[in-house]
């Protein structure tokens, strides 16, 4: 059982639930950036929720099925077709042998997830099939001509739900929850208030980090920070005062102070932010 990549689009990566627990060895977790969309895609085709799927940035991908195969597309919304017929998002769809799935430009959100029944069964690295774009670990980004092996038929049948009623990712100002970070006290109160204000997502954003454009955040403590452990969702501030929200492929340690940490509940939304989209943060207390 294989899947042919006829066109890979902007950036198509194999991702699963990642490889947490190796940060002490310098290896980050990586894994699907929009975890909810990723696990939903798997559940729709009866897979365990953590098997490898394709994370496609922006669109422009074409996949050809060799056998009858169930698949589902979640995350970003755009024009998705199977042999020219529209494919409903969040719906298990059966592809006939030779059928071509085409994912057009994402119109809502920015990352599609394509799960196929059985999962993408490329060889794992350190216990995971996730590509870590910073460390260069795991399966290479997909390119035209790749043949992707599929895993064995899962135990569970295709679930009987017809459509999962989930709205497309919103283009409105995203409101994300923010905890004070370990170096909140390196910044002025004014900087913290500005952090909670409005930001614009930079086009220079990727799985390593989402850069935010807006006012500079001024520090009280100058001097250098000894490198320390970083987390997905941590907002590190570079010496010029610009914040970056760390993504799943973030460096394991870093030397820029972390002013705040986006809560786990808000992380998935980060994956679907489009360049230029507005973002605002809401301070929450640690639970």
């Amino acid at each position: 059982m294989t899947l042919h990549v006829e066109a890979s689009g902007a950036l198509a990566l194999v991702q699963d639930a990642g490889r947490p627990g190796l940060a002490r060895l310098g290896v980050g977790a990586a894994g699907a950036m929009d975890r909810a969309a990723f696990s939903l895609a798997n559940r729709l085709v009866g897979n365990p929720s953590d098997v490898a799927a394709i994370e496609l940035l922006l669109g422009g991908m074409r996949l050809r099925f060799v056998r009858r195969t169930w698949f589902a597309v979640t995350g970003a919304w755009g024009e998705v077709t199977l042999d020219g017929a529209r494919v409903e998002p969040h719906t298990a769809t059966l592809a006939a042998p030779g059928a071509i799935l085409a994912l057009g430009a994402a119109e809502h959100g920015i990352r599609y997830y394509v799960a196929v029944r059985g999962g993408i069964a490329v060889p794992p690295a350190l216990g995971s099939r996730s590509r870590d774009t910073l460390a260069g670990l795991g399966p290479l980004a997909l390119s035209a001509g790749d043949l992707l092996p599929l895993g064995p038929e899962p135990v569970d049948p295709i679930p009987s739900v017809d459509v999962v009623p989930i709205d497309p990712p919103s283009a409105a100002t995203a409101e994300l929850e923010l905890l004070p970070g370990p170096r909140r006290d390196w910044f002025t109160d004014g900087a913290w208030q500005r952090m909670l204000g409005d930001w614009s997502v930079s086009a220079r954003s990727d799985r390593t980090g989402i850069r935010l454009e807006g006012p500079a955040l001024d520090r009280i403590v100058d001097g250098e920070l000894a490198s320390e452990g970083m987390v997905h969702g941590g907002i590190q501030v570079s010496p010029d005062g610009a914040p970056t929200v760390l993504g799943p492929d973030h460096p394991v340690t870093g030397g820029y102070p972390v002013i705040g940490v986006v809560t786990d509940a808000s992380l998935d939304a980060l994956a679907q932010l489009r360049p230029g989209q507005r973002v605002r943060f809401r301070a929450v207390a640690a639970r």
């Binding site: 947490p20 627990g21 190796l22 940060a23 002490r24 000894a226 490198s227 320390e228 452990g229 394991v252 340690t253």
Partner: peptide, 9 residues
């Protein structure tokens, strides 16, 4: 889940 030692942390 993980312990990440560094220079002072």
């Amino acid at each position: 889940i993980d312990l990440v030692p560094a220079a002072r942390t």
